[in-house]
Amino acid sequence: MKKDLKLSDIPKHNVFQVPDDYFDRLPMRVMARTAAVEREEVTWQTSFWQRLRLALPALALLLLFAGIYVLHVPAQPEEQATNLTTVSDAQIVEYLSTYATVESSDFAELSSLQGQELTAEFMNISPASAAEELEYYRLDEIDY
């Protein structure tokens, strides 16, 4: 073979061959295959719609349950916190004085507040009642 062979030296020639009458038969084969693909698609579409029709009642029922659940979902914790802010301090103090149990640790905490003024509103007690209470209890006898 020539060492300095150029592309232009080589005659253009189709080296590939096809079976006899290949191009005479190809259109028929293409048409037959296209028809088969179309039939498959029609069958698939038909069976899809049939399956969808069967699945629709179950799907509707599922959506109904989901809707009911969403409507009755319990209130979020954030909402509860928000609601608490709407309650006045006086109502909170009243609630605590009625239901909360006072423990000695609470008194200990109270001692850390010495020197700070507790408002009358917070104490929820008149100066006269406070004096009465102080007279009744001898504070130096209480252990805490």
């Binding site: 028929m28 048409m31 037959a32 028809a35 179309e38 039939r39 029609v42 579409q45 038909t46 719609w49």
Partner: peptide, 13 residues
Amino acid sequence: MRGCAVRQAQPLF
């Protein structure tokens, strides 16, 4: 399928 036009390639013999 009802209500849907279906086209199919028919081999021409």
